[in-house]
Design a protein around this nucleic acid. Sequence first.
DNA 1: CGCAAAAGGTTAATCGCGTAACCTATCACA
DNA 2: TGTGATAGGTTACGCGATTAACCTTTTGCG
Lengths: 341, 341
Amino acid sequence: MWSENKVRIKDIAEELGLSTATVSNVLHGKTQKISDRTVKAVEQKLEERGYIPDMAATLLARNNSRIIGVVVNDHPKYEGHVFEDSFISAAINYLSDETEANGYFMMLKKAKKITEIVAFASMWNLDGVVVIGFCEDEYQDLRDRIRVPFVIYDGFLDEQNRFGNLTIDDFDGGRQAGQYLKEMGHRRVLCVADNEICMDYLRYQGLCEGLEVKAGFMKIPMQAAERELFYQERLAAIKNYTAVFAVSDYYALELMRFLQKNGVDIPDELSVIGFDGSREARNALPKLTTVAQDNALLAKTAIHLLLEMINGETDAQTVCIPVKLWVGDSVKDLKNLKEDS
Amino acid sequence: MWSENKVRIKDIAEELGLSTATVSNVLHGKTQKISDRTVKAVEQKLEERGYIPDMAATLLARNNSRIIGVVVNDHPKYEGHVFEDSFISAAINYLSDETEANGYFMMLKKAKKITEIVAFASMWNLDGVVVIGFCEDEYQDLRDRIRVPFVIYDGFLDEQNRFGNLTIDDFDGGRQAGQYLKEMGHRRVLCVADNEICMDYLRYQGLCEGLEVKAGFMKIPMQAAERELFYQERLAAIKNYTAVFAVSDYYALELMRFLQKNGVDIPDELSVIGFDGSREARNALPKLTTVAQDNALLAKTAIHLLLEMINGETDAQTVCIPVKLWVGDSVKDLKNLKEDS
DNA sequence: CGCAAAAGGTTAATCGCGTAACCTATCACA
DNA sequence: TGTGATAGGTTACGCGATTAACCTTTTGCG
């Protein structure tokens, strides 16, 4: 209906008076037992007819699919917009490049439950999957049900090395932030987080370590709609601190805008520091100082770890990705006040 | 190796002493010629064994795949970060939901050339594809080469109705912005765009129409790195205007930050208005007034149009999606100056 | 000259599912 | 008692590609 029919291996073979096996062998470089003349002829015909393999048939015939699944937790806190989140979309972007660079396909999916991941992996014969945004017990559950290797993209410290697991150095990130704040003369620092899970708590602990003094901790609501009022009620309390460390750039920027709207100058009256190293942080005004993770490296490591697991070259292990403070303009130097004003 | 083997239709059939055809028929609701007892038994066994169809085999056996491809132009201007762009990531997010809601799978891909789209569609037997970010001649070329229907997600006016084509009402969007600016008392308005393609030009023309006076036009460099200097050199010229209309929120926000950094108060000294209705616009400080497109509606319409084309219910046609001004705080009311200050 | 090995292929089974064509009791009815 | 319809399945092929096993020639070599 829309232009001529798809060309199959069979067509190529018939036009050359060869068998499909020979054509297939040429396609896969198994040319030891094929004469150079035949190889040339096949290659030319493939080119001429614009042969493109049928993936469905290929997958069915092989026992590996060369497809990697990327499954993101469709967590309510994103309100249906996970793929628009800056960390997630960066992950998708780099993972897409990295899978392709390694000759794999990527299939993307939102999921709410790990059974969806299992089904997804099974129906597409995925060679492996990268999972993002679930929690520890879900991963345990996943490991017991799934038949292929998986890598946790935003993982955690796991002494037992039960999973293919990437984690950024949350503690050290917090520590770097804390140390920097200390160097800038801050002692009264508030940490802002939406829950008390491991990751956030490590960042908080690192913060305290870096500061060499205990920071405040404020748990904020997960619903975006509730946060404005929440902050409003605590504005005075927040202003008691000289700096705020948020566990994500998203929260840091949101808070920064809230404060600016309420006439609080950043960083003059209050310093803010984030975590993620997102583009939004770099684009903010003032530029948000943030603990930056290297998303490109993260994706590269994730895919390489996964491929090694697929090839049986390595077992489950936790890989820790270092993190580096990116200095913007959102932290005030309290030590050199004379030069400042 | 990782837990037991995949369960196939054959396994189910054997365990029940039935043929695979019967099981397959139950799976597809073709139960007219099967006794209720058998149907129940099969359904129960499928459930019990957790049967999940193998997509490779399913695709191969059917002549439709129920997969929709989403292909995004990996344009240099994104510098490798297309999927992180706010318009694109919103598109991906909604298209993912919408394909799933209609019982289809989505496969995502970056492409530089349309031959990649053709190959992609062919290898996966895509039922249809949504394409984003290419230009008109590429689409013409695509139409001649591809064997399945496609819909242009960010299309253009096409009197000949050659394509499945979505377009937002660019002209009217510009007009609404212009009209609003006029009502706010602005007469000297500058339009900022990175090229002179159809879409941007329509927005510019709409702007002039709404303003009832010709606006200025400034073509900016596509390379992010060049733009800062570019703006710097033209700061005085820009300040000659009372308002700037940028053809995207991205440019509007970038310019707004540049101006703020250079001590220009928005909107007091200069008003800014964007185009897209992105989350960033809503989150900016001041909130960026912008011509908002309804991304959810766009995706819904794209998938429905595509499905209709796949089912042969409709021919290629251009569908125009309306657009609505979203008023933030980035435009100053010059008419009621007394109340302002 | 005779036999083995290498060169250059081909045949046919397989992957899991969908589906058109076919088969066989049973039942209704004249 | 014979005939046709109906209920309730089964058989067998095809989808396109992979791959192990097999089959001819030709060549090497003692």
